[in-house]
Structures are given as C-alpha cells and as structure tokens.
Amino acid sequence: MPRKRMGERTFAFKRPPYVWSSGSIVGDVEAAGPLGEKFDLVLEDDTWGEGSWEKAECKMFEHAVRIALEKCGLETEQLQCMLGGDLLNQIVTANYAARQLDVPFLGLYGACSTMAQALLLGSVLIDGGFLGNAACVSSSHFSTAERQYRFPLEMGTVSPPTAQRTVTGAGCTVLGAQPPESGGRNITTYNGVRVKEATLGKVVDMGILDAANMGAAMAPAAASTIMAFLRDTNRTPDMLDAIITGDLGVFGSEMLLELCDDEGIKLAGKHHDCGVMVFSPDQKLNCGGSGCGCPAVVLNAHILPRISAGEWRQVLFLATGALMSPTTSLQGESIPGIAHAVLIEKES
C-alpha cells in the first residue's frame, strides 16, 4: 500500500500543508447573520456595481483571492496555483476570475463540495512537492443560482420549508508548504494550522427527487465520508473537536445524525453545519444556507480563525455537493450527493 494512504480512501500527508491566510466576501443577507462581523468584506449592493450578477460573482471570487493573498504578503505572480470553482454552467465564475488574476489555474466542479475538493487537491499537490503554495477558492451568488436552478427573482413564489437559500459569498484559503512566516513574511493571520489528512468522497444517491430538499439528498454522502474517515483513521467522533459539514441545513443535519446513529456513531454535540451557522433562525430562511460559497465563507471567516486561536484543535471539515442539473431533475433523475473531507489541525 502507498505510504500516504490509510484504509479505503483517506490520505495522510507526510508534510502537512500550512494554512497561510483567508479571504471572505459576502452579501448583505449573510452579513445580517450571526457571523456577520467576521467577514472581510460585505457587499451593500448584490451587483457590486457590475452590469450583471454573474459579473458581480466573478468579482467576488477574484477579490476573495486578492484579500487572502494580501493577508499573507503574497503577490499574485508568486501564487503557484489557484484551485476552485462555483455553481454556474462551465464554472464561468472561476474561469473569468482566473482570467483577471492571470495565475496557473485548475477549475473544479464538485457543486457545493468544491471548497473541500479544492483543499484536498491543493494539499495533495503541496505535500507531493509540486507546489509551494496554492489558493483554494469557491463562490456562489443567490441571484445567479436562482436564475440557473430555480425561478426568476421577481417571480412571486413560496419556497417550501425544506428549501435553503444560496449564500452570496466567496471564500479563499491560501495553503503553503512552509510555515506562513517563512520567507521573511510578516504573517499575523494563522499560527500552526495544518491540513493533516483528507478523505475522498463517493457519489451516494438514495433516490431523493426533490430539488428543494438538498439537505436530505446530500446527508447520505456526508455520512458515508464521515464513516470512511473514522474507519480509515481508527478514530471515534470523541477524538475530534468538531465535525463540520458544508450546507446540509437544519433538516439535512438531522438526517445525517440519524444515518450515523444507525451505524452506532454518535455525532451529537460534535456536529455543526455551515448552512445552519451562516443565517439565524430569525431571518426565516427555511433550512439555512447552501451553495459553494456557504462552506467557503464560514470556513474562512469562522472555522479557521477558531482553530488558529486554539478553541478547536482538530476539525473534520467536509463540504457536501448535490450533483444534479435542472435538466436531469426534469428528466426525473434523483439527486446524487458527494462529500469530501479534510482534517484541519492546530499544531501543539
């Protein structure tokens, strides 16, 4: 068996990449949520002065990267690779942002799991010695996602109670092979935060057809990856400080706990969900937040700072994606889900 592999589908990094810095940008609805003050930049206008929402999302993506690079004192020319994606067809947000940034680029699509997918691949490339640094990014925008997946914004429709609101936001994490303060840079962002392990997701489909109930569609994929991680690394949930999913929302989280319970794994108390954290129940947004931007902004504005501060020492971060399209939904296909996980640790 290869040296850096554990069990069925987990990677154990020999030279775990360091987390250098973060950038996060959100819209006004996200800023009104419980994490509102932690984001680097809040848009007052959801087009950010651009002619379309797609252009605005692209600008968010680009600037999330610029903010993160600035924080770790890296020029764009020094960035060795950007890995990222979004929800739009042909991942245009990421592609056009990469055009603006003029950096080596790997476009990824894992629906809302893209942030974890980018962290996993970025870490692999750094640990393998192919990259000295990498920016992992993902974004989503309420208005662009509504147009692509649901109804026009000005349509007066009622969303069902299981629905989630796509987060308007972009988040970027810069990873590096050396400690952040290496190369004489004056880094004050993160201290000794490293990506230690990662678990690949499998596509799991339990036959959920309702596109307004993504949480329930993705929960089985999250359960599969969590159980694989625990099995592969011989851990129990008690050994971790937190297990954080991307955008299962209130109901999806409930189903995840049920599924793990069936297998005798108790997640209660350890499990959090970015979709639940990003909005408060008073905002009346049904089951919470969703979209690529949801785990990206919560990770970068809330989770990583908490790990760096030592409040959490070991966190399993996994983002879940629903891999359908409006066409497959109309053709009666069910919604397959995927979840990739990374174990982020604070060095003692």
Binding site: G207, I208, A216, F251, E254, M255, E258, L259
Partner: peptide
Amino acid sequence: YQQRVKELAPKS
C-alpha cells in the same frame, strides 16, 4: 431512507 425523509421533513 426516502420514507424516513418523507416522515421527518418539515411540512408546509
């Protein structure tokens, strides 16, 4: 699983 989701999902 589909049955359980149907039973537990918040209703309109």
